[in-house]
Design a protein around this nucleic acid. Structure first.
Length: 594
DNA sequence: AGAGGTGGTG
DNA sequence: CATGCACCACCTCT
């Protein structure tokens, strides 16, 4: 990789020539862009590198006008494009040149699949590390920053830009062999198909009613401050420095956000001997100050996590929120979301209803009904579980009636709640002790209940045990499409061997369930996006939360789009889950939530 | 800067 | 023997 071959394209004629004479004949090309910003809406595109195995063409965007041939080349579904974090380039090209890249192999996503679940896997997939590990080439990434200034293109910058696409070919060769060897082709194809959908989703962003959001914050602030004042005056007598200051104000004696000071308060001053200041212990304390603190925490949490900071992320140009969706942000294949994380907005309508459709548009809220439990039923093929879903019976009530040996109609709320806790707990590999605590029964009683459960649902038990054993034996667990989650097995001599294995077993029971649910949602995103495009829907997907997909579409097409969305979610589910029906609930609304 | 605690989501 | 999956944001403290 010394002396990379490249050509700096600055004239329209030469651009047409290299496309006609060289690039059009290539089945595989590599794509990268350089610009002045990471925000596609603020970005000024400077370079577009189109690589072949032998040579990189570096298009000088500011010196060229007509990109129609480039568009044809990049949107051609038959030609494979190699990218590294192609979501960024997809968005940059879409906004700057109106080009929507198709048929992508992304080295970053592929590498994430090869390392899913392993420590620091996200850090293992930078181009610098890929080049080092696959090719033993040292890439200097410092030059990247120099593009931000947007000045004249230098020779160093050209060499850097060329290398970024040239290395992708040999990396692709070796990496794709690994993908095939580990039977990850299906998963990789799904991830690559999702990439442009995620790009579109991020570009579209979500509208937020700032005034409503701020009004909510104001009332929360008042309540929080009231609560803080109450607590301070309640505990002030316990502290020496409790006099009013020169102006007659009573000072704060503790910082209510300081875990350390709170422990001092509860244990030294109040003698409660709390092991921590977490919710469960504060509740059990049955102390007025603990109660007040819980209430204070509730408000403070909402204000700090979902306050002004979220509003500050609104894009200047679009006036909307454009969070980062990282499609392989988790070990199981789920999305993670940040800046801001719209996957953790409180369920409470006061918050969710602030996210709304733009004028003349509607939001389509859709989610899978009990996706994970249906997947567990499908995997285990447990007759009782499968029957419940086939007959569209309420699973929790049905399991309760069998466990407690009472007719379906005689199941009490408490019975249903207890079995519901077990049903969900199973998917986390949860044990009798922790289930007992939550239901409010002794560990012994919980164990009896679990034994009875597994006697009734032998298939479930068998499948869970097998999932755990196979993972420990193979070193990985996998989903319905073969998405792997890798485990680092501890050494037998490790003092924490048993604990480590236990943790692996729980994750291994969970991965096929959570991961297949993620596969399903991703497939649905691809299906919905394609159908919306095909049927000319004015609008698109704006948000996804694990088993939920939200779209924003023009009012006149809301009915049609909601039908499409539901159909495609079910179709995606049914391609992965065969023994149990898949149900998706849809609602058309002006705001997020049902 | 990074760890630990706390708490929001599915 | 102990035994709850997957995340991200904010706070304080070191």
């Amino acid at each position: 990789m010394q002396d990379p071959q490249f050509e700096h394209i600055t004239s329209q004629d030469r651009l047409s020539e290299v496309i006609e004479k060289d690039l059009k004949k290539r089945d595989i090309i590599a794509i990268d862009t350089e610009g002045t910003s990471l925000d596609p809406y603020a970005n000024k595109l400077l370079l577009l590198q189109i690589g072949t195995p032998e040579k990189a063409y570096i298009l000088d965007i500011r010196k060229l006008k007509d990109f129609s041939l480039v568009k044809e080349l990049l949107e051609d579904p038959k030609r494979l494009k190699l990218t590294q974090n192609g979501k960024f380039d997809y968005e940059a090209l879409k906004v700057s040149l109106g080009i929507a890249m198709k048929n992508i192999y992304d080295t970053m996503l592929a590498e994430a699949l090869l390392n899913a679940g392993l420590e620091s896997s996200p850090r293992l997939s930078s181009l610098k590390l890929l080049a080092k590990n696959y090719l033993d080439v040292d890439l200097k990434k410092e030059i990247r920053e120099t593009f931000m200034a947007g000045g004249k293109i230098t020779k160093d910058q050209l060499e850097y830009a060329a290398l970024d696409v040239l290395v992708l070919f040999p990396i692709f060769g070796k990496q794709y062999a690994k993908i095939k060897e580990k039977s990850l082709t299906k998963t990789a194809k799904l991830e690559f198909a999702v990439l442009p959908v995620v790009g579109e989703m991020e570009l579209r962003g979500t509208a937020i009613d700032v005034n409503k959001w701020r009004t909510n914050l104001e009332s929360l602030k008042i309540k929080r401050d009231e609560m803080a004042k109450k607590i301070q005056s309640e505990i002030r007598p316990l502290y020496k420095n409790s006099q009013a200051d020169l102006f007659g104000n009573m000072g704060n004696v503790v910082n209510l956000n300081s875990q350390k000071q709170l422990m001092e308060l509860f244990n030294d001053k109040l003698g409660l001997e709390l092991p921590s200041t977490g919710v469960s212990f504060l509740q059990k304390a049955h102390h007025p100050v603990a109660q007040l603190l819980l209430e204070y925490r509730g408000y403070e949490k909402l204000l700090s996590s979902f306050g002004e900071n979220l509003i500050s992320k609104i894009n200047k140009k679009t006036k909307r929120l454009h969070p980062d969706f990282f499609q392989l942000g988790t070990a199981t294949g789920r999305f993670s979301c940040s800046n801001p994380n719209l996957q953790q907005i409180p369920r409470d309508a006061t918050f969710r209803s602030c996210f709304l459709a733009k004028k003349g548009y509607k939001l389509i809220n859709a989610d899978y009904s009990q996706a994970e439990l249906r997947i567990l039923a499908d995997y285990s093929r447990d007759p009782a579980f499968v029957k419940a879903y086939r007959e569209n019976a309420d699973l929790h009530t049905l399991t309760a009636s069998q466990m407690y040996n009472v007719p379906f109609e005689k199941v009490t709320k408490e019975m249903r709640q207890a079995t519901k806790t077990i049903n969900f707990g199973l998917m986390y590999g949860r044990g009798a002790v922790s289930i007992g605590i939550q239901i409010g029964i002794s560990a012994d009683e919980a164990k009896k209940l679990l034994d009875k459960y597994f006697k009734t649902y032998e298939g479930v038990k068998k499948w869970l045990d097998k999932a755990a054993a196979e993972a420990v034996q193979k070193g990985y667990a996998e989903t319905r499409i073969g998405r792997k989650r890798w485990f680092t097995l501890p050494d037998k001599s490790d003092p924490s061997y048993t604990r480590e294995i236990g943790s692996i077993e729980r994750a291994a029971k969970n991965h096929p369930i959570q991961g297949t649910s993620a596969d399903m949602t991703k497939l649905a995103l691809v299906f919905i996006n394609a159908r919306f495009e095909k049927e000319g829907i004015n609008g698109g997907i704006v948000h996804t939360v694990h088993d939920e997909i939200v779209s924003e579409v023009i009012e006149e097409q809301a009915e049609l789009a909601s039908k499409i969305q539901q159909e495609e979610m079910v179709r995606a589910g049914e391609t992965l889950v065969k023994n149990v029906p898949i149900v998706a609930d849809v609602a058309i609304s002006d705001v997020w939530g049902h």
